[in-house]
Design a binder for these strands. Structure first.
Length: 286
RNA sequence: GGCCCGAUAGCUCAGUCGGUAGAGCAGUGGAUUGAAAAUUCACGUGUCGGCGGUUCAAAUCCGUCUCGGGCCA
């Protein structure tokens, strides 16, 4: 009888909190291999902009799922799960510990809790729904699935659109499809091992400012310039828009840095809100 | 030295005929299972530059001082 495969170890927390460095430490400690759980470090061509691990870091331990997608490739949490699961299994089969590292809360939760039994996104339907006024989306959702409408933040176009999309694609009520899934996943609570990095807000802001400065000095501008003609999925990365403004001469370098700083701070706050609520790991102060 | 303009939230500014003030940004908290570095919701007491005066009542009118900026010497 073969021994049980090593359980994955999760390292998460807000941006610029030091996840990559901690992952390396744990890779040594647990004889592990690192797997990315960051939505934008998946992409090639924005390694600096997305603060992906450096070549020096990557050389120290096997790293997986960094720079594996072309900039124009769309992605979502479900696709990420499909990419990550086989890699986790292969690492475990070698007797190594998967060290899953990243700050994309939704991606992590898809990995740990699995997808709800819902139809996946449909690009052409989204184009169609995007053309309708929010009021109409709300009206259609309310008609098809009043229960789901009552549970949805109706001011949030994305959420309304997604709920309606589920109803239209499945021909069933989104509320019915979602039911049961949450209860099923509740058992995972507190069972997984890992760390949520927490730092005082002030310290985190200092780290963000430092990282933004280094990023702008060490190639992020060139990365965005190189993608100038590409209509890419990764345009949503923080810093992309700001650097494009810089390249067009609309703002100066210091303004660009300030805008990126502010956007990164806001992102870090959203991540903290997410991880504060997620109780499947026990938070550990660093 | 003289004249003019400005000083209001952390920042940029609005504030009508005098009735003790509100936007954007920043910040904080929340939502968030298939776009998530996305999307979205909520939260505004501050010596209205200081001191005096007029007035029932002053961010608002008057005087004066301080600090910016400008013009003329």
């Amino acid at each position: 009888m073969s021994p049980a495969p090593p359980e994955p170890f999760y390292i998460c927390g807000p941006t610029a909190s030091g996840k990559s460095a901690l992952a390396l430490a744990y890779a040594r400690k647990l004889d592990g291999e690192i797997i990315n759980a960051d939505a934008f470090q998946l992409y090639r061509g924005i390694e600096t902009l997305s603060a992906a691990p450096s070549l020096t870091e990557i050389a120290q331990s096997p790293h997986h799922l960094y720079g594996v997608l072309a900039p124009s490739t769309p992605n979502d949490a479900g696709s990420y799960r499909s990419l990550a699961l086989p890699i986790i299994q292969r690492i475990q089969a070698r007797g190594k510990t998967p060290i899953i590292t990243g700050g994309s809360g939704l991606y992590l939760k898809f990995l740990t809790h699995g997808p709800a039994p819902l139809p996946r996104a449909d690009a052409s339907l989204r184009v169609e729904l995007d053309g309708l006024p929010l009021g109409e989306l709300v009206a259609r959702l309310t008609e098809l699935d009043p229960l789901e409408a009552s549970r949805t933040a109706l001011e949030n176009r994305r959420f309304v659109s997604r709920a309606l999309e589920i109803c239209l694609l499945s021909g069933r009520k989104a509320s019915a499809l979602r039911d049961g899934w949450e209860a099923q996943t509740a058992r995972i609570s507190g069972k997984l091992r890992g760390i949520v990095i927490q730092r005082p807000r002030e310290i985190l802001h200092q780290r963000i400012a430092r990282r933004t400065r280094i990023m702008l000095e060490s190639g992020a501008i060139q990365e965005v310039a190189a993608l100038a003609d590409v209509s890419s999925h990764c345009e949503k990365a923080i810093g992309f828009r700001e650097i494009r403004c810089l390249l067009r001469g609309e703002i100066d370098l210091s303004t660009c840095g300030e805008l990126i700083n502010a956007a990164t701070r806001q992102y870090a706050k959203r991540q903290e809100t997410w991880f504060r609520r997620e109780q499947w790991l026990s938070p550990e102060k660093i």
